[in-house]
């Protein structure tokens, strides 16, 4: 038996044990358990399998494992009650489980931000603003006028970006509330049709349907279009300023800058265009020579033919 089989069987056994215990306990108690061995076992198993997998597979299975965790975590909240518990408030449970759409989407897409954020995380923005503001409190630090103006500009841009991010994330908080309401409506529809939701998967699929519908409506609104634009524009403004400042430092150190690279790219592009134009001329020339040669070959034949007549 290979290592993977061994780990797989161990993991399954651990899960079985957990669920048996858990199932017995939920009958006795309505309180939420704080630790979650099946999730820990899943993580442990995945950590042991992942290194052996190719990159594409690691990414794919990582997402699958993450989604599985999300699916069962949310279902767990609905299952933590005894059969005869009449006080179970499913509407509140839905709010608690699905309310934080911002976190859920971040879990799905890996980030809330359309453009990879690099060093622009919430914490680093806070740190940068605080650092730069502190810097200005020291008199005679040696910052020149240009440098100071750049730093101030940077602070302004960081603050704009931070605001755009907060507004964008707030939109998702509101969206989460709308999605919860839609899900509650869908669950009520199921109920009024005489049906019941009896599996985690069924609940999850209904939630996806509700959220996707609300999302599609909301992200087409002028509000979202503005927030999305402002988020990217303000992030680009920060990056551009960052680059300008770095370029200035690199120039002072005699190191190549973005400006230098861009100039080289422009030169390469112009050269390539010139070469292509020359190649086109050469092709035309070749065609023209071929045509002339063909004419020459035809002409003597014509003359010979007219002589024969």
């Amino acid at each position: 038996m290979g290592e993977q089989d061994f780990l797989g069987a161990e993991w399954l056994a651990a899960q079985r044990d957990f669920w048996e215990h858990w199932s017995a306990q939920t009958k006795a108690s309505n309180e939420r358990q704080t630790d979650n061995p099946w999730e820990a076992a899943l993580d442990q198993w995945w950590k042991s399998v992942a290194p052996a997998a190719p990159e594409l597979m690691q990414e794919l299975l990582g997402k699958t494992v993450a989604q599985a965790k999300q699916l069962f975590q949310m279902a767990e909240l609905f299952a933590r009650r005894s059969d005869d518990d009449e006080s179970f408030d499913w509407q509140t449970a839905i709010q608690q489980t699905f309310g934080d759409l911002r976190r859920i989407i971040a879990g799905i897409t890996g980030t809330m931000n359309p453009v990879p954020e690099d060093m622009l995380s919430e914490a680093s923005i806070e740190d940068s603003v605080a650092y730069l503001q502190r810097l200005f409190t020291f008199p005679g630090l040696g910052l020149g006028h240009r440098s100071q103006a750049q730093q101030r500009e940077m602070i302004a841009r960081l603050i704009d970006y931070q605001k755009a991010r907060m507004d964008y994330e707030r939109f998702f908080v509101d969206l989460g509330n709308l999605a919860v309401t839609r899900l509650q409506e869908k669950v009520a529809e199921v109920e009024s049709g005489g049906g019941r939701i009896e599996s985690a998967r069924m609940l999850y699929d209904l939630w996806v349907e509700a959220s996707e519908a609300v999302y599609a409506e909301q992200v087409m609104t002028p509000d979202y279009v503005r927030l999305y634009g402002e988020l990217i524009n303000s992030q680009m403004a920060v990056k551009l300023q960052m680059r300008t400042m770095l370029d200035d430092s690199f120039t002072a150190l005699g190191m190549p800058t973005t400006r230098d690279f861009r100039a080289l790219e422009q030169r390469a592009y112009d050269d390539r265009k010139a070469i292509k134009a020359l190649q086109k001329e050469m092709r035309r020339g070749k065609v023209s020579v071929k045509k002339k040669a063909a004419k020459k070959r035809v002409a003597p034949r014509k003359r010979a033919a007219s002589r024969d007549r």
Binding site: Q15, F72, A75, A79, R80, W90, A188, V190, E198, S199
Partner: peptide, 17 residues
């Protein structure tokens, strides 16, 4: 309307696993 029994969920998790 949401009636996911612990035993059912346990089975579902195990099946998924």
């Amino acid at each position: 309307p949401i009636d996911i029994k612990p035993e059912q969920l346990a089975e579902e998790v195990e099946g998924y696993s």
